[in-house]
């Protein structure tokens, strides 16, 4: 809200004052200042936080139906229990992020029930079907690892106090999801050739899927508000490297081939395929042979959403209106 004296200012002066306020807050949070309420935010900070929390909430929410459809493939009662425990965690994580959004004045009602399926902001990976037990455990090993890579960084670095505290539970549980994935990947590899081949097939489509999830490389990324406002600590490329630094050695130990390797000269992980490239969701295959595409083409594919998008969203919302009508 503009102060009384602001009405005396020209539009240009007001703009300069706003920019000054944004710059002051950026400097403050870079110095370790923690915000505790929306009243302390500038419009720029609030906007960047809402975008970040929306992606976080939608990702947690959409992982639930993806895992839920796949949990049907659990081989025993105990694996059913652990698969559903993970789904329960994801729904709780989603609730936490939507709650934080409500405290910023956004509406969970509108976000969860008022949007078209393609308007959700989760990654393209959670628009894909997970068709067998191996795919579910690799999703835990890869996708949940991406989750903990991203959220662990937010937890350590965010300048928003309520989010920092909420992530204690989330991080703890994501670590469990990741272990579940790793332990099962190891078991499947040991069980012999059939399962190893199946696992390799999962890695072939899910590894590049997760690499892409981290988004635009730093040299193409325009300025990041999330870094300036200290809503996270690492850049997209740094986060992608963190993920690869644990995923590539894991796969190598298991004898699984991944299209990436550690380069000593650059002291980082390097991809062995054109990045980014096109994906055929029906065949679950990356079209390496067709070469590199532009990031605009990637954004087009993401915007078009994947094969399970509408099915997953509808699975979460289907009975709500019916039950609500019983009370009205």
């Amino acid at each position: 809200m503009p102060e009384y004296a602001d009405y005396e200012l020209t539009a240009q002066e007001r703009k300069a004052k706003e920019l000054e306020a944004e710059a002051a807050l950026k400097a403050k949070v870079q110095g370790g200042y923690i915000l505790e309420s929306p009243a302390e935010m500038t419009p720029g900070y609030r906007k960047a936080l809402v975008v970040q929390l929306t992606v976080q909430a939608d990702t947690e929410l959409m992982s639930a139906p993806a895992y839920w459809f796949a949990a049907r493939h659990a081989p025993t009662a105990n694996t059913q229990v652990s698969a559903h425990a993970i789904i329960q965690d994801e729904l709780a994580h989603a609730n936490i992020a939507y709650r934080l959004l409500e405290d910023l004045g956004e509406s969970k009602e509108q976000l969860v029930y008022g949007r078209e399926p393609h308007q959700f902001k989760h990654p393209y990976g959670f628009d894909q079907p997970l068709d067998n037990w191996a795919e579910l455990v690799v999703a835990n090993g890869f996708f949940d690892r991406a989750g903990i890579t991203l959220l662990g960084d937010v937890h350590r670095n965010t300048s928003y106090g309520p989010l920092k505290r909420a992530l204690v539970k989330v991080d703890m549980e994501e670590t469990f999801h990741l272990r579940h994935g790793e332990v099962w990947m190891r078991r499947l590899v040991r069980s012999g050739r059939t399962a190893s081949a199946l696992l390799q097939r999962c890695v072939d489509w899910m590894f590049p899927m997760t690499v892409e999830w981290f988004g635009l490389p730093d040299h193409l990324k325009r300025h990041s508000g999330q870094l300036d406002y200290r809503l996270k600590g690492l850049t997209n490329d740094e986060l992608r490297q963190v993920w690869m630094a644990s995923t590539v050695p894991l796969c190598e130990r298991l004898g699984l081939k991944v299209p990436a390797h550690y380069c000593e000269r650059l002291d980082e992980y390097v991809l062995d395929y054109p990045f980014p490239c096109e994906y055929d969701p029906d065949a679950k295959q990356w079209l390496f042979a067709e070469g590199e595409i532009s990031w605009n083409q990637v954004f087009e594919r993401w915007k078009g959403r994947g094969p399970m998008n509408e099915i997953y969203v509808e699975s979460i919302r289907r009975s709500r209106d019916t039950v609500a009508s019983w009370f009205n």
Partner: peptide, 14 residues
Amino acid sequence: MTDPSPGALGESVY
């Protein structure tokens, strides 16, 4: 700031 949208099922925050 209390719950801005109790939702169709009349929920509120705890």
